[in-house]
Nucleic acid binder design. Structure first.
Lengths: 193, 193, 193, 193
DNA sequence: AATGAATGAGAATTCATTCAT
DNA sequence: TATGAATGAATTCTCATTCAT
C-alpha cells in the first residue's frame, strides 16, 4: 500500500496503473482486487489514513493554557515544526494531498478536500482558543485571517517539500525548524493585524 | 479553445476526453486534430497562453520609484488587486494552473511549473527592486521570504478563487480589493521581518 | 504524379498518405481530388502507364528473323540490356511493380499482376518465335521453362535494382550490359536444356 | 498466431486489422495485447520464427563431401526439393516473406529483408563449399552468379507457389521434385559458366 | 488467498474523402 | 480550378476489472 502511495505521489493518480502497483508489490493483478475494491477506493483509503495521522499531529499542538506573546509564537513554531517534520517524513502522502490528488476522480478529490477542511477547522479552533485566552485580539474578519493563515501554511509546505517544480524528490536547504519559525513569524504578524 | 479550458478546469485533464471537447464545441473529432496536434499540445498551449497574460499583469505592477512605507503597502495591494481581479476573470485558467494541471501528463505539468517559476521570478525582482530603493531592509534570507510570500499569494489565491473544496464555481464573499489588502498586510509585515 | 510514384516506391502504398502526395506537389488536399478520383485510382493509373512503357521496351526486342545460336544469345542480351536500362531509368516505377505494389489494395495488386502477366506473355511469344524459327528445340515443358525464365529475369532485376535490402536508392556495381549478358547466358543454357 | 499469419498472407499487413485477427481467433481485442505487444511486433515475430525454420531446411542441405558433377546436380535438386516442399507446407509464411512483407511498416520490412540476406548467405556458403571441393570452377564473378542463382530460386519459388497473379491459394501443376530438378539444371548450367 | 489470462468499453489518433467558397 | 477546413468511420491500443482455477 505504501508502494501504491509512492506511485500515486510520483506519477499522479491517472498515470499510476493498477498494473504498476501490482508490479511494484510483486503480486498479481487479481490479488490487488482481493485486497482493494478498486483503484479509486485504494486512493481514498490512503488519503483517509493519512488524514488521521495528519490530524493527530495538529491535535497534539492544540493550545491549552494562556501565555505571553512569546509563548504564542513559540508554541506556533513548535506546532509548525511538528507539522513540517511530519510532512517531511510522509512526503508521498503530502504529495498526494497537496499536489496530485486534485487530478484524480471526483471521489478521490473529495477525500483530499475533506482532509484540508478538517485541517483548516483544527487551525480555526486553535486561533479561537487563543482569542478565548485573550492572546489574540478578537476581530470581525477572523475567518478571513485563518483562511489566509491556512493558505500560507499549505503554500509554504508545498514549496518547502517539493520545490518550485513540484518534484517529489526535492530537498529544501532549510531545516523544518527554520522554515517553521519564519512561517510562524509571518503568521503571528499577520494574525496580530 | 476556451471551451476546452473550462472542461480541463472542471473535470481535470484526464477526465476531459477529446470527445467532450469536440462535443462542447459542436464539431467532429477529426476537426479537433485539424486545429491541435494532440490533447496534450492543446493543454500546453492553453497554459502557455495563460502564462503570457498572467505575466503581463504582474509586469504592469513592477515597482519603478521609491516611496514611503505606505506607498509600498498601497502599491503591493494594487498589484495584488490586479492579480486577484485577473484571476477572477480567468477562473478556468487559474484552476488549470493552480489545481488541475498537476494531475496531467509530464509535459503539461512542466508547463504549469514553468508558469509558477516565472511568476516567482517576477515577484523576486519586485522585492529586489524594493530593497534597491531601500524600501525594504536587505536581509540574508530574502529568498526564503520571497518563497513564503509567493506561497502565501498562491495559497490565498487558490482558496479565494475555489474555496476549501476546490470548486470551480465557488464564489468568495470577499471582493478582490479586500483580500488583496489583507494579503498585502500579511506580506508587508512578513517581509519587514 | 511522378512525385506520387516516388513516394509509393519509397514508403509503400499504405504508408504514403494523400497528404504526403499533395505536400510534395505543393498543392492542397482538395486539388488532389480534382485530378484523381481516389488514391487507389492514382496508383492504378501509375501502374498502367508504366505497363505501357514497359511493354514498348519488350516489343522492340521481338525476334523477327532466324539466326545462329550466337545471334540468339546476342539478341537476348540486347533485349535484356534494354530492359535493365529502362528499369534503371524508371526505378520508382519498377519498385512499385516489383516490390511495393503487392502490399496495396486488391485492385492495385491486380494491376500489378496484370502487368507481369503481359510481360510473361511477351516473353512466351518471343521464345515461341525462336522455336518457330528453329533456333530452339521444341520441348514439351516450354511453359515451365518460360516460367523459370521470367522468374529469373524479374528476380535478377529486383536484386540488381534494389539490392538485398530492397533499398530504392541502391546502386549495383554491375552495369546493365554486364548483368544482362550474364543473365542471357543463364537463360540460353537453361532454355537449351 | 498461425491464423494471423494466414491473414497477413492473404490480405497483406495493412489490410489485416487487429480486429480481423482476434475475430478469426475467437478472442477479444484485449486478449491480443496480452499476447503480443503490437501488431507490428506480431508480424516481426512471425517472420523471425519463419526465418529459423527456413534456415534449418537449407542448413540440412549443406554440402559436406566432394562428388561428381552428377552428385552435384542431384544434391542441388535434393536441397531445392526440400526447399520447395517446405515452402509448399508453409505457404502463408512464404507469402509473407516473398510478397506481402514489403508492403508493411519499416521494421517488418527489415525483418523480411534480413531473412533473405541470411538465405543468400547460406547459398553463398554452399557454392563456396562446392568450389573448395573443386566441384565448381572458381571464377571472379562468383558473387554475381550467386546473386543470379538466388534471384532465380526466389523468383521460381514465388511463381510456383502463387502463380502469375500472386494468389495464395494457387496450386501449380508441377510437383516440387520436378520444379526443383528443372531449377537445379538451370542453376548448374548457369554456375558452370 | 492468489494467480494470470481474458474481457470489453472506451481512449486518442489517423486519414481518405467531401464540400462550401 | 483550387483551397483548406471539416468530417466520421475506422484503427490501434489501454486498462480497470472479472473470473475460472
Amino acid at each position: 500500500m505504501s508502494l501504491a502511495l509512492e506511485l500515486f505521489a510520483r506519477k499522479g493518480y491517472h498515470n499510476t496503473k493498477v498494473s504498476d502497483v501490482v508490479k511494484s508489490a510483486g503480486v498479481s493483478q487479481g490479488t490487488f482486487y482481493w485486497y482493494f475494491e478498486s483503484k479509486e477506493k485504494l486512493a481514498i483509503q490512503l488519503i483517509e489514513d493519512g488524514k488521521e495521522k495528519l490530524n493527530k499531529v495538529i491535535e497534539q499542538g492544540y493550545r491549552k493554557h494562556a501565555g505571553s506573546v512569546d509563548d504564542m509564537v513559540r508554541s506556533s513554531a513548535r506546532l509548525l515544526t511538528d507539522l513540517f517534520e511530519f510532512a517531511d517524513q510522509n512526503r508521498y502522502l503530502m504529495a498526494l494531498l497537496l499536489i496530485k490528488g486534485q487530478g484524480a476522480d471526483p471521489l478521490v478529490r473529495d477525500a483530499v478536500s475533506q482532509t484540508w477542511l478538517t485541517f483548516e477547522e483544527a487551525f480555526k479552533n486553535n486561533v479561537n482558543r487563543a482569542i478565548e485566552l485573550q492572546m489574540l485580539p478578537s476581530t470581525i474578519d477572523l475567518s478571513l485571517r485563518v483562511t489566509i493563515l491556512v493558505s500560507l501554511i499549505t503554500g509554504v509546505l508545498t514549496k518547502w517539500l517539493f520545490g518550485p517544480m513540484h518534484d517529489v524528490d526535492y530537498k529544501s536547504t532549510y531545516p523544518p525548524s527554520e522554515i517553521a519559525e519564519e512561517t510562524a513569524r509571518f503568521e503571528f504578524r499577520g494574525l496580530m493585524g
